[in-house]
Design a protein around this nucleic acid. Structure first.
Lengths: 143, 143
DNA sequence: CTGCTAGATAGTAATGATTCCTAAAAAAGA
DNA sequence: TCTTTTTTAGGAATCATTACTATCTAGCAG
């Protein structure tokens, strides 16, 4: 889905973040994709419009956006970090082979009741379901 | 919970793995803890009995055991990999601050129905629920 | 509109977990 | 016991990420 520059600037302002062209481009790219890119993916993408951008800026910006709770980190294996600009509650489908991540929107999954018998004092803020399996492409490749 | 050398040797044999003292020690340590240790944690632990063991062996062994599906990798953030020797279906409670992982055993969570409207051809093999929040210790430290 | 200041950027160097490479050692079956 | 195959240990290499730092710029104040 598309996001306007206006909206981005407002969100940054709300979180006390300066709006720079690089930062805006990185955030826009992340919100407008569902591919859960790595820092390098984003670096390559944003480089098309800002050839002088450094990888450092991408890492720094992702850190800032994450702290401001405008984006989230997603993890698959212990490989490089991947990011998600979609903050609405949703879940993930991950392929064991190609590590692709697909969003799962299913209302029922948002209504799981918290487990009982937790360690005393633990306060749950949110949860996420990770479904693992094999995507069509990887299955046909094996056959 | 405790595991006997017998059992370990049998499991290795079933998977066509040689039984070496180092390998046995690493696997035993992993099965007998619920702390989801890193490779380095295991290295330090096993070093007490095998001072000459190399980190390399730990990494190599974890890879072998994972391929044999005797252990699993757990991930919290994009930090170093953590491992779990408990293969029975269970879920995790993770502290945003200290990154500690606690096992959650809750039968209801094992009966979640798979979502509908998935990409065609995707075959789900398993799933896991990750609850995030703040543990008692980190909450009191902030207050 | 202009100047000021905190924060952002880019480039390079450093870090640290993990992997690669290789020779020597050890397991397991014959 | 012998042989083959795998495992181990150690050091070097890799690669994502972070640290450092000088320059630059956004955004506010005047």
């Amino acid at each position: 889905m598309n996001i306007s520059l206006e909206t981005i600037r407002q969100r940054f302002k709300d979180q006390g973040l300066k709006s720079t062209p690089q930062r805006t481009a990185i955030y826009k790219a992340l919100v407008e994709t569902t591919s859960h890119p790595t820092a390098e993916d984003l670096y390559r993408h944003v480089s098309q419009d800002y050839p002088m951008i450094s990888q450092n800026t991408v890492y720094y910006t992702l850190g800032v956006l994450q702290q401001a709770r405008l984006i989230r980190e997603v993890n698959v294996g212990h490989e490089r970090a991947r990011y998600d600009g979609n903050l609405s509650p949703h879940h993930h489908l991950i392929c064991h082979d190609c590590q692709s991540i697909v969003d799962v929107m299913d209302k029922k999954l948002n209504e799981i009741s918290f487990p009982t018998g937790l360690p005393t004092g633990f306060e749950i803020t949110d949860y996420q379901v990770e479904f693992r399996g094999y995507c069509k492409r990887c299955r046909t490749q094996k056959a």
